[in-house]
Amino acid sequence: MLEILQYDFMRRALIAGLLLAIIIPCIGTVVVFKRLSMMGNALSHVSLAGVAAGLILGINPVLGAIAVSVAAALSIEVIRKKLPRFSELSIAIVTSAGIGLAGVLSGFVSNSANFNSFLFGSIVAVGSFDQLLIVIVSIIVISVFLLLYKELFYIALDEASARLAGVPVKVVNFIFTILTAVTVSVAARTVGALVVSSLMVVPVACAMQIGRSYRQTIWLSVLFAVGFTITGLVLAFYQDLRPGGTIVLVGVLVLILIISLQALINFVVKKENRIRKAGDIS
């Protein structure tokens, strides 16, 4: 176990991974409860276009991804307002635009290995600048999430009632959209653009199965994400697997386990009740 900590790049990957495991589910809970689970997916595809643009222009690809996905996130909100009854359509439109743009731009990237590392993430690719960026973004996301905890909860639960209660819905939605875009872009480097949206929803899905309140569900999502990340990174290191994919697969496996266990418990409880009822009758 300690061997893993001897390498500088592994220590960096662990720190980056843990910070992301804390902030991604925070964003994820709100995204899931706002019924916008596919938003992370759309933004991560779009961020690939930003990565490609960054590589072509010779600027840091993570910064390119941030710029493009913030623009995309805002356009999702604009399209959503134009088509209020089909909010998922806005996400589909932006996803396809992102894939199209990323596809075309990636043709101009000279170093395709570098571009590919953003698809599924790369541990060795976390440089000191990337790490600094993750630390800064994490501090911002955690602070804003705590400061806007009440607002985000009410908006996720029921936007119309939140407005009547005096919550500045528009402003909070705007801030949250930008935070989501930035988080997705930063996470693309470590866990991979194609994997980040899963990390946004799988821990939340696990937590929802056992959470007994909103607060508890958030804590559990963070704990699950941290658990998946550590397990995934260790497995990836010793078995020579791709880290992003391993982390998500660990999560999906745990989700399947939880759901199966619950089904089993329900089955046993029902059966016991039936036996008890039968006993009462006789």
Binding site: F33, K150, E151, F153, Y154, A156, L157, S161, A162, A165, G166, V167, A207, M208, G211, R212, S213, Y214, R215, Q216, T217
Partner: peptide, 14 residues
């Protein structure tokens, strides 16, 4: 939605 009765009522005291 995994929210308790208390959390939902309290939200309106914003």
């Amino acid at each position: 939605f995994p929210a308790t009765v208390e959390e939902i009522v309290q939200a309106h005291l914003y």
